[in-house]
């Protein structure tokens, strides 16, 4: 992973396979913000406020789809997530470290 951050973006996009960019400042719903990918500076409009350090969807993500950041899978969507929406614990879940899933299966 090439780690290169250039000036002039509001959110950081780490890898061409990613579905999310990370907010570099607190951003408001309705704001048009920029992130940079291989093709250059991209603009999207935020559907929701995105706090500093949190993730915004830069593509539509389907229910059940793997979600990528750093080019790698960080979890799975538990709802469908539209471009410009906040991506966090309310709409993605971890796939690893899920001792609770075995417990639920055992209870059923």
């Amino acid at each position: 992973m090439e780690h290169r951050i250039e000036t002039g973006a509001d959110a950081l996009y780490m890898d061409e396979r990613d579905h999310v960019a990370t907010a570099l400042r607190d951003m408001q719903a309705g704001e048009s913000i920029h992130y940079r990918n291989a093709a250059g500076l991209q603009m999207i409009t935020l559907a929701e406020p995105i706090p500093f350090g949190h993730k915004v969807a830069v593509a539509d993500i389907a229910f059940g789809q793997d979600v990528r950041k750093y080019g790698e899978v960080i979890g799975r969507a538990v709802n469908s997530i539209a471009l410009g929406c906040h991506v966090h614990v309310h709409n993605i879940e971890g796939i690893r470290g899920r001792g609770d899933l075995g417990t639920k299966e055992a209870a059923q």
């Binding site: 990370t22 907010a23 706090p51 500093f52 350090g53 949190h54 993730k55 950041k69 790698e72 899978v73 960080i74 979890g75 991506v87 966090h88 614990v89 993605i92 879940e93 971890g94 796939i95 690893r96 470290g97």
Partner: peptide, 9 residues
């Protein structure tokens, strides 16, 4: 709270 959603991330 700092924006990390999963152990993978």
């Amino acid at each position: 709270a700092g924006g990390l959603s999963t152990i993978e991330e």
